[in-house]
Simulated assay, not measured.
Amino acid sequence: MSVSRLSTIAQDYLKAIWSATEWSDEPATVKHLADRMGVRPATASDAVKRLAAQGFVVHEPYGSIELTDDGRTHAVAMVRRHRLIETFLVEMLGYGWDEVHDEAEILEHAVSDTMIERIDLALGHPSRDPHGDPIPSADGTPHRPDGVQLSAAPLDTDLLVCRISDADPDTLRHLSAHGFALDVAVRVDAHRPFAGELSLHIGNSPAPVVLGSVAAEAVWVTVADALQAEPAN
């Protein structure tokens, strides 16, 4: 799935369109894409028009943005590159999980397809990146785990952390300081929507932790028994 024939901007937009709906049921829109890319809506709209002209997306004015088969192929290839590079930086070069996103944003456009496949081989074909986002396989198949945001998790249930959003490094550091990591056991004691927070226990710690809504929405969990029952990739 070579993406070398695309411009860097086109690669970034295709990846952002695909990623926008990976963990959300909300459709990708120009406004959402502009927020994600940190640009004005008019700039995002122009980029979408160019992608549509190239046959990578379908978009009606004021409607959702849909990837074509060709667009999806290139988008998933970029997602795979990004997440393999993040994993390599953490596991091989000792980066922190809050440091790798920006580095991967640069490197994903520079390395060859051959290097990506050698990174994959050297890492033992990992199924997820350091934040729990699934790494698509070489044929472009995504493997999103079943999970819900901690803010919507059931009470008094044995849960395991399966994903922590890397959208904000400060949130990652905050959660790490509380002991959050992939596969850590958690148990929600109480939701307090009136206060915008929840109380939970992490691992074997006897003391409860209180999280605000922003942090709670950045963590995804799955029922412990369900995750453990999944076959290994």
Rank of each mutant, 00 (worst) to 15 (best):
T141K: 14
L121V: 15
H82G: 03
L182S: 01
I85N: 03
D168I: 13
P154Y: 09
A138Q: 12
G147I: 05
V79S: 03
S165T: 09
W97Y: 09
D166M: 03
L160P: 03
I164W: 01
G179V: 05
H143I: 05
D156S: 09
L155G: 05
L160G: 04
H131M: 11
D146G: 08
L89A: 04
I135L: 14
I106Y: 05
I164F: 04
A138R: 15
D166R: 04
M78A: 02
S127A: 15
L175N: 04
E103Y: 09
A110M: 13
Q149V: 09
G96K: 14
T141Y: 07
L160K: 11
L172K: 02
S176V: 07
P145F: 10
A153P: 03
G179A: 09
D146L: 13
L84D: 00
T114K: 13
R163L: 08
G140S: 04
L160F: 11
G179L: 10
T157R: 06
A185L: 03
V90I: 10
P169W: 06
L155W: 11
L182M: 06
S176Q: 15
A152C: 07
F88D: 00
L155A: 07
H101D: 13
A177K: 08
I85A: 05
R80Y: 05
I164G: 01
A177R: 09
D113I: 10
A152M: 13
